[in-house]
Design a protein around this nucleic acid. Sequence first.
DNA 1: GTCTATAGCAGGATAGAC
DNA 2: GTCTATCCTGCTATAGAC
Lengths: 218, 218
Amino acid sequence: MTEKPIDNTTRLRLLKKAEILFAEKGFHAVGVREITKAAKCNLAAVNYHFGGKMNLYLEVFRSRWVPRARRIRHSFEEALQGQESPFIDDVVGALAHAFLEGPLTDEERRCHSQLMYRELANPTGALDLLAENVMQPFFMKLRNLLRPHLPEAIGDDRLLLGIISIIAMVIHFNFSREAVSRLTGRTYDPAFKARLVEHITEFSLKGLGGMNQQEQQP
Amino acid sequence: MTEKPIDNTTRLRLLKKAEILFAEKGFHAVGVREITKAAKCNLAAVNYHFGGKMNLYLEVFRSRWVPRARRIRHSFEEALQGQESPFIDDVVGALAHAFLEGPLTDEERRCHSQLMYRELANPTGALDLLAENVMQPFFMKLRNLLRPHLPEAIGDDRLLLGIISIIAMVIHFNFSREAVSRLTGRTYDPAFKARLVEHITEFSLKGLGGMNQQEQQP
DNA sequence: GTCTATAGCAGGATAGAC
DNA sequence: GTCTATCCTGCTATAGAC
């Protein structure tokens, strides 16, 4: 599966270019010829290094997507560092920031959410990997962070729907950039992204509980 | 473009089956052979009736997707019938209902949102059609309905982001059913869909303004 | 490890009989 | 309008030289 960590060689170039192309066009719309040409290597390299196009695709998720998801999660957790039981708005703000501004370059971010959404749309086996190792734990983490600050009247199921809704917004604003730009007339420059983070934070905060966080401290 | 309205023939069968397959697998992942086989007609029929696979795809949007979008919109507007200036919660409730329960069968609904989201992800030319003729007008309609009930402090841009967020939720809960089921442990039965409508309505209502609509009537 | 060359097959499109 | 047969181009995968 994973070879030596130090190789800036064909294998790595292939993974890099393949990821971009898969994200842009989807698995079926990209050909091996296209990938190898972009990676400036030979057609046969995909089969030599990965044993086929599908395995290359899966390896993109394993060796590039998952680590990037970890970086996002770390960014999220660092923003809350030191606070054992952060306020709701801190949690939601950190979440929106991590996904929309966060540690990734804009290109990486786009790539990341496109790949994920394509996989959600068209599960090919990589979804199991993502759901179990990345999404599920993250959702549980969020639930545990938010739970103590919400009224008990809000059941766990309701909270979970709230969290899914927040993620839905984050994904949508990242993924459907073209449509969002078309509707708002704005491009994804830093100012607009900051605006989006602000919006998502505010909207979700109100949506979740509708009350000010300070009022609920015991 | 559009032929006689009465033909339950090859042409119509092709459109029906093609839509389902395109929705399930995406444009590139479906072959013409697969479509014609499903429609129980000959391979050459696609080229004869539509002049190619891509034109068939576009015609699916023109003759099936757009009319269905109209039905959703009518369902939304009927739910508000008679009220010249409905309350926010009525608007949001009608919206969530129209998309998640609404006039479509569950199969149609799935098909509909899958097609849309695939097109958002991978614009092929059909997006222009959708954005200009369906989405843009609908968003404007929503904005006009919601505006009079919100404080003036909420600018048009903020309102627009709110509307996009609501749509994002609706789409997500329709589109990523597999992931949602996995996380919540629930299937999309009528009870769960009703629960989702309730959730989206509540979450959006709070998210939009955070205040009870009755308080803002002049 | 990387290349060239090619096998083997599936894709969309088309010509022409009926 | 619908069929069969076929073209041609694209694909993935592999064999074997270097």
